[in-house]
Design a protein around this nucleic acid. Structure first.
Length: 115
RNA sequence: UGAGUAGGCCGGUCUAUCGCGCACGCGAGUGUGAGGAAAGUCCGGGCAGCACAGAGCACCAUCGCGGUUAACGGCCGUCAGGCAGCAAUGUUUGGUCCCUGCUACAGAGACGAGAGAUGUGAAACGAGCAUACGAUGGGCUGCAAUUCCAAGUAAACCGAUGUCUGAGCGUUGCUCGCGCGAGUCGGAGGGUAGGAAGCGUUAGAUUAAUGAUAGACGCCCGCAAGGGUACAGAACCCGGCUUACAGGUCUGCUCUCGAA
RNA sequence: GCGGUGUUAGCACAUCGGUAGUGCAUCGGCUUCCCAAGCCGAGGAGGCGGGUUCGAUUCCCGUACACCGCU
């Protein structure tokens, strides 16, 4: 599986996002909260950091890019099953890439094991 | 030589690997991709929709003089006063008192009155000020404007009020005047929230690209190991203002001394 | 993205430019065998930085934070 992250792998649309947060399973993988559910369609991923914790848009963008990059590099952990996944950043501090990468790996393993 | 002051400019560079948006291409691929403030949204335009016979009132903004501009409340020059500084310079204020009104405490008296001195007071017949007056400008709302396509629903229900003895609507805050003329207002409830244009212009997305990792160089701190490298991220586009900002650099001017 | 509102005592709110008040809460006293209620008294405040003015919570500018509306 190539380590790419094209546009159709992004989760978008108010209805889909609302449905995921309403119906999906969730757990915490510091410094993020993960919400996911299996799906028949392509795997779609949503990544964000809240404005209430990070006032400056630069920081939010940076965190989003770090999380997205970590997912892109390790998405092959998931295997054949497709999922809708949302990662939202929770910690008050900006964590470095290595920390986020670890957390993403952990949570992806957890998802693939649980289902 | 040191200190200060004003203005301008820059605000990382390169390599490797893995990626993202857009354009072109059948394809391999090629080209291109954040800022001086992109920010705050404080002004001014463009642009869009609605409206516009006319009159009056209200409301908001501006306020020495001259120039600049598409326009401005910005900028440049200049005059006068206050404040800071030895100075260069910085900063701030700037229509008028005829009408309406305010000037606490103190003081005999505070804008009313016969006048003056002393004292009081920021101000004592001289005034100062704005909510007052004058001049000039302003139709209203804003790209979540607006237009189109697709999908879908509820012309139903309850209450109030009205059909020429006229409700209400438009004239954009109000009045007059003018025009329209059978519905209108409130309650509770139902549906949708996808796509395209707007937004082409050497970024142009639609939940949002411009990134990550590793190494080298430059700069700063430190004896060294090592650490740090600002403020900050386009969402229709321009001209300004304001605020944030590590460090570097150039030019003019002022004061101070000859020197560790 | 666009537009609007607010910030006053621990809390909720007042205040035409002239000594910043009210209620609840807190503390002290009176009353009571003790407590509550009641009565008397006290402490405590203008988000921050400038400007106008004799004088600013009020007017003006900047800034920080919070809240609301618009597809």
């Amino acid at each position: 599986m190539p380590n790419t992250f094209p546009k159709h792998n992004k989760l978008c649309g108010q209805e889909r996002i609302a449905a995921l947060y309403k119906e999906g399973k969730r757990f915490t993988a510091w410094p993020m909260r993960v919400t996911y559910q299996p799906t028949e369609e392509d795997t779609q991923v949503l990544v964000w950091a809240p404005k209430s914790l990070f006032k400056r848009a630069v920081k939010r963008n940076h965190l989003r890019r770090l999380m997205r990059e970590a997912y892109r590099l390790h998405q092959d952990i998931l295997g054949e099953q497709h999922y809708q996944i949302a990662f939202n950043y929770m910690d008050k501090e900006e964590q470095p890439f290595t920390v986020i990468e670890k957390a993403i790996c952990k949570s992806l393993k957890k998802i693939s094991e649980q289902s």
